[in-house]
């Protein structure tokens, strides 16, 4: 754990309440992202194993009794995590159940990309919180953190690292898979829009509120390829520049707003809602409690100054 060297690229110190709200909200997202035991789908095999499922048979998670126990274990771990208690125990429990369950889900032959960010943040926080604990276990002296920083700051920091990496990867892979032609070919996204529109319809045989409009937008994209390239190019740029969220808190906020706007656009045009990603971005990047506190302090400081000057 090294101190960052540049003026701007530094690990920010988190206040007690800021970190508490981050944990509380993130615990809520983890809980939300796992299906309730009552609504479990049948997964008694893992025909297309991914990740851990290549080495371990994870189908035991799909046993209703086992899953019920795991689910309530996860709930307990998340309560402890929210309260900041027994993190070296709570985080591996939550991460293990979340990763195990979703790995089984993704081993059915249909890879979902809704949960990776949540699992990876759990994993990153687990690794960070285990560093001082493992050192103590092996009799090594504790690592000296830079002044003013605590391990919780690194847990939040590595959560930001994971978020930045996820969006940069999504941008880079577009350039790799198209030999850099993604923006040029982007008007072809119209066919993908029509596909997702149809797929959403065939899920329940129900058209959503913007079903007809999407067809109009798809045609517009074909008729106006350069306007499409401009819009989609902006989206790609947001992904590629997501690393800027690590500059400082203000950049995290700005990039958070851009990423949420990107997701909103994807939702509107393609009907693909990345709700867990959006929640995670809102928690760690938009970080309302911190900015509310910051704004409050500014306002009260100004009022204080005003009172002082009127006294004079």
């Amino acid at each position: 754990m090294q101190q960052t060297i540049s003026k701007y690229w530094q690990v920010p110190a988190r206040g007690f309440w800021e970190w508490f709200f981050m944990r509380l909200c993130f615990a809520g997202v983890v809980w939300w992202s796992l299906p309730h035991p009552g609504s479990m789908v049948v997964m008694d095999s893992q025909p297309y194993p991914t990740g851990l499922a290549n080495y371990i048979d994870l189908t035991f998670f799909a046993d209703p009794q086992v899953y019920r126990i795991c689910y309530y274990l996860l709930c307990g771990a998340l309560i402890l995590y929210s309260l900041g208690l027994l993190l070296p125990l709570a985080l591996p429990t939550a991460a293990g159940i979340h990763i195990g369950m979703i790995t089984l889900h993704n081993s059915q032959g249909a890879t979902h990309h809704s949960f990776q960010l949540v699992s990876l943040i759990l994993l990153a926080q687990w690794v960070v919180c285990w560093i001082p604990w493992v050192r103590r276990l092996f009799g090594k002296p504790p690592l000296k953190l830079p002044e003013g920083l605590k391990w919780r700051d690194y847990m939040a920091w590595y959560s930001l690292q994971v978020i930045a990496a996820a969006y940069v990867i999504a941008g880079v892979i577009k350039l790799i898979n198209t030999d850099g032609r993604w923006i040029i070919d982007s008007p072809n996204l119209a066919v993908q829009m029509m596909k997702t529109n149809a797929q959403n319809y065939y899920n329940w045989l129900q058209a959503d509120a913007v079903y007809e409009q999407r067809a109009t937008v798809a045609q517009f994209m074909i008729d106006n390829p350069n306007v499409t390239r401009l819009f989609l190019g902006t989206g790609l740029l947001i992904e590629l520049l997501a690393f800027l969220l690590l500059v400082n808190r203000a950049w995290a906020l700005v990039m958070g707003v851009f990423i949420l706007a990107l997701h909103w656009g994807i939702d509107m045009t393609m009907g693909l809602t990345f709700k867990y990603q959006m929640a995670v971005v809102a928690i760690f990047l938009i970080n309302v409690p911190f900015w509310a506190g910051w704004l409050g302090r500014k306002i009260f400081a100004k009022k204080g100054e005003g009172m002082l000057s009127s006294d004079v």
Partner: peptide, 23 residues
């Protein structure tokens, strides 16, 4: 694609044709 890691390849290729499947 090795959960929880992913290279997030969705919509990384822009072909002029695609397909969906129904029952």
């Amino acid at each position: 694609e090795n959960y929880p890691f992913s290279n997030f390849p969705m919509y990384s290729k822009m072909s002029p044709s695609t397909e969906y499947y129904i029952l």
